[in-house]
Design a protein around this nucleic acid. Structure first.
Lengths: 349, 349
DNA sequence: TTGAAAGCGGTACCAC
DNA sequence: GTGGTACCGCTTTCAA
């Protein structure tokens, strides 16, 4: 019933625990072949499993990292987590997943807990909160991490400083709006996210400057609030249908809302893309399953996770400098939810 | 740069580390109010964060659990993980997520790693593999867990024994087939999952016995292989369209394949439900976003995770007996992808 | 009420 | 080549 420890192995093999440690860790220190064999055999026979906890205590490295996300059920985060996990596994790291629902208190609490477990690093997958007080608190908590030699990488803009792997959110939206404009649309509604997220602000500002760049007026009533979830997309559809002057195109700031909007418009008897062109951002799997398939800006979500984790590892071995940033490319995926204004495609119904 | 330890706090508060430990852990052992205050103050001032690793070593409890899933990007597992995580957080547990892609070697490797980290328990979220050798190996690995006092709960049938929280997979399919039959369908195709999973076998056997119970012939050509992923649903649609005698209904053994099939059928010019009724299993979020919304058997995925985690905790405090099983209810969700054979609904097109 | 000391299971430095 | 031993940072008897 008692755990078998390195001592038991040493006894069984008739060697010191030092030697056991050496052979089991492939230490460069010389060990005779026969001793090595005896140790291996003993460890095997006793079914010895070295305590990673004990190892972590003395080596000051846990080989555990934490990833803080909004919600594992959101495909956006699920994809990122998968990217993180795959790289982590290949490098012998374990990952603790923390759902914060973007609640600052929960995020902060997780941060402290992860610190007490002495994780080797933390990845912030979600958009940063634009709350000053929160930003300071996180920054302070991160201080503890850095002091220990632990590292941090963010996959979105944050108020605190850290190594980052990003997409250019502002440009993503600019490109999306530009595409819609190139189709002839001049009245483009925008479904925004929660105001307190940096990502939301960047995307919104992309929308605004794209309109401005094309000399289009910014109509406040065309900016509809959402929360990046499916249901808010449906509500947005209602809001759009209630508009006295309906837009000819709608850009949802993420696919989940875009899909909700698609369903909402359909239920309201509005045809996409004949009556309204609709487009999203992210390119989650569902985007191609809906009818019509959703045009969207594909973000490299999996890569954000995998490259984020790779960066974390390099950061630890000082192959990478702190507080730098990497920006990954996005790309337009044209499907059938968007059509040129006044063309055959848009007219047929 | 050096970590502040309990010793530093003790020095600063002018007490022994024993006392520090006592007040910081709310020990029942008496400590004078002023001493307590001094300790608290010192800990605060030093920004002391007790090492959960050191605590774990001596208390022999890590408050970390592992959950082994197929793929975090699959809504099925994402939902379960969310259920696990929510309960874990409320109880002060951390959860390590392990993606195995159902590869036995990866699963086994994770199991050993988790054991070396002395996790308090493991949750198997996915269906068991029907491989004898694999079953034995897992059983053996679990032995190590049990010997340590760690626990295990499975959310599906497995060859090894463990506490389980289940759905009655055979009955789920029976109920689905029964519903289709009640709509007048007599020729029902079935999209199955990977043969090596217990879940697949149970569901398939539900399909077979449902047909038999209704005196319907079992036509092998109507059983189409899939792997529970979206793409295999699309391939299944092709296979179905190529059938000399097309079925009037299709039951996909999960929603992801059901949705893939829906898209595939649409592309092949086949109308759902007018030409073919289609139904899935799971009730993932996307099921209601596709057109037509998918009729499905809703499984309590979130509850599987949350109740699984609650059971794990109770198991550890011996409030629950090992190796028992809990079965959760499923329910039919009728949406518009299914229609009665020969009715107005099925005829209009 | 308070504290000294024996571990928990390893690693790594230093001798031999 | 091999082994002794001082920690890593905490909890928990056992005494005082």
């Amino acid at each position: 019933m008692d755990m078998v420890s390195i001592i038991d192995v040493a006894k069984k093999a008739n060697v010191s625990i030092t030697t056991v440690s050496r052979v089991l860790n492939g230490s460069p220190h010389p060990v005779s072949e026969e001793t090595r064999a005896r140790v291996l055999e003993a460890a095997e026979a006793l079914n010895f499993s070295p305590s990673a906890l004990a190892q972590a205590m003395v080596t000051r490295a846990t080989r555990i990292i934490g990833v803080i996300i909004g919600d594992a059920m959101d495909p956006y985060f699920a994809t990122i987590v998968r990217g993180v996990e795959d790289v982590a596994r290949r490098h012998g790291y374990l990952v603790i997943v923390c759902n914060s629902d973007r609640v600052p208190e929960i995020e902060l609490q997780y941060l402290h807990t992860l610190d007490s477990y002495r994780v080797d690093g933390v990845i912030f997958a979600g958009g940063g909160l634009t709350d000053d007080k929160y930003g300071r608190q996180v920054g302070q908590a991160l201080e503890a991490f850095y002091n220990r030699g632990a590292v941090c990488v963010s996959l979105a803009k944050h108020l605190f400083s850290s190594f980052s792997v990003l997409v250019d959110n502002e440009q993503v939206v600019k490109d999306a709006v530009h595409y819609l404009i190139s189709l002839g649309h001049r009245s483009i509604a925008y479904i925004s996210g929660p105001a307190l997220l940096t990502t939301t602000q960047l995307r919104l500002s992309g929308y605004k400057s794209a309109l401005e760049a094309h000399g289009l007026p910014l109509k406040p009533e065309l900016i509809i609030d959402g929360d990046y979830k499916y249901e808010s997309g449906r509500r947005a559809a209602e809001a759009i249908m209630a508009l006295p002057a309906k837009p000819t195109a709608v850009l949802a700031s993420n696919d989940l809302m875009g899909i909700g909007c698609l369903v909402g418009l359909r239920e309201a008897g509005c045809h996409v893309p004949q009556d309204i062109s609709l487009m999203g951002i992210d390119d989650i799997a569902t985007a191609q399953a809906v009818d019509p398939p959703l045009t969207t800006m594909a973000l490299p979500l999996y890569d954000l996770g995998s490259i984020g984790m790779e960066s974390l590892i390099k950061l630890r071995s000082h192959e990478l400098a702190d507080h730098e940033a990497l920006t990954l490319a996005h790309r337009l995926i044209i499907r059938r939810s968007t059509a040129a204004l006044g063309t055959e495609e848009a007219m047929k119904r």
